[in-house]
Design a binder for these strands. Structure first.
Lengths: 106, 106
DNA sequence: AGCTAATTTCGAAAAATGTGGAAATAGGAT
DNA sequence: ATCCTATTTCCACATTTTTCGAAATTAGCT
């Protein structure tokens, strides 16, 4: 993963609304959630939500799938894992990190 | 870890210059690096660097220690581990992630 | 064709961020 | 005391982000 890509994903998640949004999608699991339902949960205007959602989709952290008129959104786990992997690598590159969470990848 | 804090750390890392800066500090290991040396590596004005550095320090991702006139900077691994832990938790909350990096914390 | 519901795009204003030169400050050394 | 080096703070400006109402679009239904 390139630094530029990692930075844009981090930036995408580095906004409270978007992080909350991402969280909601993660908790929604494989079923995902239509945009409308997310909007109810977050209680923000649809146009605002649409922008945030676009950001997450553009950086590969969220995937969308049309189902008739509604758009189902799902957290894209591989995208997140890539990012976590990058951070862990950067963090543990030369140094020894206290393995709090990142202990895998033998 | 609160969502707000995670978001601010993510935002801090979500800038190419700052991510690069953090990377440099990680690779510098326990010895850390004086601000001046970082500046040479990044080749940016000192005032700009100082702003970015402050951001990382404020969010707990970097620690600084005075040594006479120079300021030694070090990556704060516990801070990063907390963040990675938060992301892993969010990511794996209900869903099953392919355990790419986050397999610990039995 | 026309209607309704879901979502995005447009346009615009306020706020935050990124950047850097110049001045100020901190910490010794002579 | 004065000076020197390292770093931060001040100030200002350009760019980007955030926000959201209104209009446009998409998709299916009748």
């Amino acid at each position: 993963m390139k630094l530029e890509k990692a930075a844009s994903q981090l930036e995408a998640l580095g906004n409270p609304t978007r992080l909350q949004l991402y969280r909601i999608l993660v908790r929604a699991g494989d079923d995902g959630l239509p945009v409308g339902s997310i909007q109810e949960k977050l209680d923000i205007p649809s146009s605002t939500l649409s922008h945030h959602l676009k950001r997450l989709v553009d950086t590969g952290l969220v995937k969308q799938e049309r189902q008739a008129t509604t758009l189902i959104c799902r957290a894209n786990y591989p995208g997140m894992n890539e990012l976590i992997g990058y951070l862990a690598d950067e963090c543990c590159a030369d140094a020894k990190c206290a393995p709090a969470t990142s202990k895998a990848m033998a």
